[in-house]
Amino acid sequence: MSEEITITIDDGEIKTHHGEKILWAALENDIYIPHLCAIKKETRPNASCRLCFVEIEGHERPVTSCTREVEEGMVVKTRSPRLDRLVKTGFELLLSDHNLNCRECPANRNCALQVIAKKRGFKLKRDRIKPIEREFELDDSPAEFAFDRSRCVLCGQCIWADRVEAEVGAIGFSNRGLKRVVTTFNDLPLADSICTECKLCVDVCPVGALYYKKDQKA
């Protein structure tokens, strides 16, 4: 085990170890920081969801806690008006491009977005920022699960599972900007791709984008 390190988060001291990222140190000590894309084993985190911002004493700008390693004596804040505003906007931006029909969603009550909303007191509504209107085709080609891109938050958890855990390489990101999606080679339905239907990706999806057909609401 590596060297023990003490840091302060929100006025409480916690013990963690050298090389750990702030996010994981906090979560392991029951201090909640919103997050979607963080993968503990990933050495170079994506840092793409932009929800895990914290303030570190001595740093001018908010920092993503998934990328920053702990340092002895570090003083971290997970809440402040500035952080809350930034995280709220980030969250609202994600909601603006997320199918909000929660009642029909297999992940209802088991959804990372709902957890964030609850913990931070955000509404699961879009009043300030308008929804982005677009349609995605449902891929229900696999036998036991389906992929609904209208719920995808592009966190990349499924791709990690496919590449690193399952070692298949069936899915990846494609396109750029707003058109960025998780997809197979040549946008083939999953069943026609090299996907082995191991379902590891379904298990890690934090929202209801990849879901088991058996969980589907009527």
């Binding site: 994506n46 932009r50 994600l94 603006s96 982005i132 750029r176 900007g177």
Partner: peptide, 13 residues
């Protein structure tokens, strides 16, 4: 590039 939330969706809005 579409990687992060703020740029991908924020610039769109």
């Amino acid at each position: 590039c579409g990687k992060c939330t703020f740029c991908r969706l924020g610039t769109k809005h």
